[in-house]
Nucleic acid binder design. Structure first.
Lengths: 249, 249
DNA sequence: CGTCGCTTTGATTTACCTCAACCTTGGTGG
DNA sequence: CCACCAAGGTTGAGGTAAATCAAAGCGACG
């Protein structure tokens, strides 16, 4: 449940003169290095909410969904995991969520108590884990904003934008591969499949994006997508609204 | 942004023979002990999204709201903070959210770089921080479930239930003090003030809760509230749904 | 005791959901 | 190589929960 994005504050050793360099010591990935690779078919379960939280997983290949299910069957996908991400970090003795394979998936698993020991022991590993936790927290907050106040179009655009950014796509018209189904998108965005479908159709009709085969989308108007995502200027935060000493209570 | 709830895994020293005891070494709270207390009026701002993230705060007294605002003014409260909670932990050099006082508030602040040093240095402090991060993450996931798939009544009931649980109220009919306004509740639950108001009125009408003055509520039917919150059996997780090797893709 | 801010209540609108039918696509076997 | 099939996706019609707009009620505080 931890997203890839190596920030290095809290890592005394990782910056020298303000210049970053590749970590020389152990990395979270290297921890899992000696473990056997496990493969999962699309649709198969990696772990279930309520299971004894005995292992931590590293995603090596493919895409996972992390989700919870309400008593009456409603499903919420709280996040997707990609290669490099870590699954199962928590302090509870049971998993708080389920995880399943969206595509073919390869993972390595590591016993949780050993993982904890390694983390406790290693001043190189700790900041890496901490960094991932912080990124995950930031993503969760973005998602709360999306779910609490954005409309269907803003939600879909935000999602597509996040997909494009993940690819690190710097091209004018990045092509993104949407591995998940409409149902996954709907359960992640708090919508129905029909609404997701209609919204995408509308975006295509407006020339913002174009469909490329089953799971491909080309972003034709990136700036437009940013505006439609409704975050107001990702880049220029802190300037969007008036600052006042007292906010209406 | 970190909730109080001391789990102690990852804390090699905090359990002996499976029996917990009060930490003898430094605690997160003691870190802030020598700092001056700062007071904030209800409605005043503690920090703003986009500000240089120079300090970490410990809430000593009162209730804070943590929120983000979209370009067009829509507000989302991502969480409330109570005494013992920590605000401002992150790796980014700017705060990712704003925080303001709901009630009269007392906090202590600690320079972030010093905080990081202390955390890096102290094997007692680290698991405490880690524990708070994990609790915060779990709360964020619950909130995503609430926002993505619960209806107005379920949202309000979930909120009231969380308030009751925070008090650790073991009585049959716990009284909770709702420090925040309807607008706060609405922005936290992804609803409007009118919907929050109507939902509470309905719950009172059904005898599930009773109003006690301006900011007080008595929970008359706790079990009913649990059912209405829609989580399906908080207690008995992992048994609520069928387990299958393959989930529909 | 009057005012201001918050809350409640009512009437109406609307974005999204639900239900239902149809279409595409990719895989399979004849 | 093509026809068929199932799963996923799209499109349409109608319903509904919550939003919006509007006004009145209520409490706290000077």
């Amino acid at each position: 449940m931890l997203s890839e994005n190596a920030e290095t504050a809290f890592a005394a050793q990782s910056y020298v003169n303000g210049k970053a360099f590749a970590p020389v010591g152990p990395t979270l990935q290297s921890l899992f290095g000696r473990q056997a690779v496990e493969k999962f078919e699309p649709g198969s379960a990696i772990l279930w909410e309520g299971d004894a939280a005995s292992h931590i997983f590293e995603v090596m290949d493919g895409v996972l969904r992390v989700f919870r299910i309400l008593a009456d069957g409603r499903r919420v996908i709280t996040g997707f995991l990609y290669p490099g991400d870590i699954l199962g970090v928590s302090l509870k003795d049971r998993y708080l969520y389920s995880a399943g394979a969206v595509t073919h998936v390869q993972v390595r698993r590591f016993p949780r108590n050993k993982f904890q020991e390694e983390i406790n022991r290693s001043p190189e590993l700790r900041p890496q884990l901490f960094s991932k936790l912080c990124d995950e927290m930031a993503a969760a907050q973005d998602q709360m904003v999306l779910l609490a106040r954005k409309n269907a179009e803003e939600r879909v655009c935000s999602f597509l934008l996040a997909m494009a950014r993940k690819k690190g796509a710097k091209q004018e018209t990045p092509v993104i591969e949407v591995a998940m189904t409409r149902l996954d998108m709907a359960d992640y965005l708090g919508l129905t499949i029909e609404t997701v479908s209609r919204t995408i159709t509308k975006l295509i009709g407006r020339g913002v994006i174009a469909s490329i085969g089953r799971h491909g989308l080309k972003i034709l108007k990136l700036e437009k997508l940013v505006v439609l995502a409704g975050d107001g200027d990702e880049e220029d935060k802190s300037c969007g609204y008036a600052r006042q000493a007292v906010w209406p209570n």
